[in-house]
């Protein structure tokens, strides 16, 4: 594989209630092995995946939120969060457990348009 493509993973589901969030993260980690240009976008309920302070002992489910902090070590540094999605949920950048770039909906749409491959979860 020689040509580097722009991959974007679009995350729109809350964690735990469905398997999408965890599956997306696993695919992201696998994709990291192929040295592509990977971005993650968080929209709608997907922004909840990055909420600080998740404690899953009570639901007997693995808390995978710390894994987002490992992405840096996998050279995945482009995390984008849609501003409007945060605002609707009463969240701010300070509520998130990793450093992200906050984009408004227009900027987010533009960024999606620039990708070679978009995978939606």
């Amino acid at each position: 594989m020689s040509e580097i493509k722009k991959f974007m993973f679009v995350n729109r589901k809350a964690p735990y209630g469905t398997i999408y969030a965890l599956e997306s993260l696993e695919v992201v980690l696998i994709t990291a092995a192929f040295d592509q240009d990977v971005s993650l976008a968080f929209l709608d309920d997907g922004v909840y995946q990055l909420k600080k302070g998740q404690q899953t002992k009570g639901i007997d489910t693995k808390n995978f939120s710390p894994t987002f902090r490992a992405l840096d070590g996998y050279d995945i540094e482009k995390l984008y969060v849609e501003k409007e999605s945060l605002a609707l949920r009463g969240l701010s950048e300070a509520d998130l457990l990793v450093d992200v770039t906050v984009l408004d909906r227009k900027e987010m749409g533009k960024l999606m348009g620039q990708q070679d491959v978009v995978l939606s979860f």
Partner: peptide
Amino acid sequence: DEYQIAPAVRVLTKA
């Protein structure tokens, strides 16, 4: 313990 995953070899080597 910190990240809840086993690192890929490349990531482990770097760390």
